[in-house]
Amino acid sequence: MAAARANAGWAYQRLYEAHARPVAAYARGQGSEDPDGLVNDVFLRAFRSLDRFQGDEDGFRAWLFVIARNALIDERRRRDRRPQVTGAVALDGPMPGGGPLPDGAEGQALERIGAQRVREVLGELSPEQRDVLLLRIVADLTVEQVARVLGKQPGAVKQLQRRGLDALRRRLTDEGEW
């Protein structure tokens, strides 16, 4: 972090390599149309504003998700202004950002379909439950960090994650997958 504050390019790259993947996963779980582009945007914003950030790398990780959440909100607003062909969440088609299926890999295709179904169910949760589950499970933040990112109390975060997990479990077990 100190090297990044000193505007060292290699330090930026190290930070990107350490945190870009969970940020992309968070964007993907939130249904971003372009997760990779959003990750680039998030890191550019973070690096350009790094002189205003105070904290260690753990705090930087939480800060990245704050930026990512705001970027997702902006993306949804832009998407809502555009004329829509399908619903807000494309539950019937492949999830945005899922990428093409690998050729000739039946096992991978089945696995991808299972992952796709999980993301679909995730999209059926309330936005707050989805936020908490993604930040806790995918971004691997603590309850306190999630509370700071979302501006909620830790108790509220725990309640949301429990209810979200229960809803996810209920939907998937009803389909006999679990």
């Binding site: 930026y12 390599e17 992309a24 779980g29 990779d36 995730l122 499970i137």
Partner: peptide, 22 residues
């Protein structure tokens, strides 16, 4: 399953603007 559904192997590619920062 949730982690597998969202996490993908490999880093997202850095676009030219970010690569210039690096």
């Amino acid at each position: 399953a949730l982690q597998d559904a969202c996490l993908e192997p490999g880093l997202p590619p850095a676009r030219p603007e970010l690569a210039e920062v690096f």
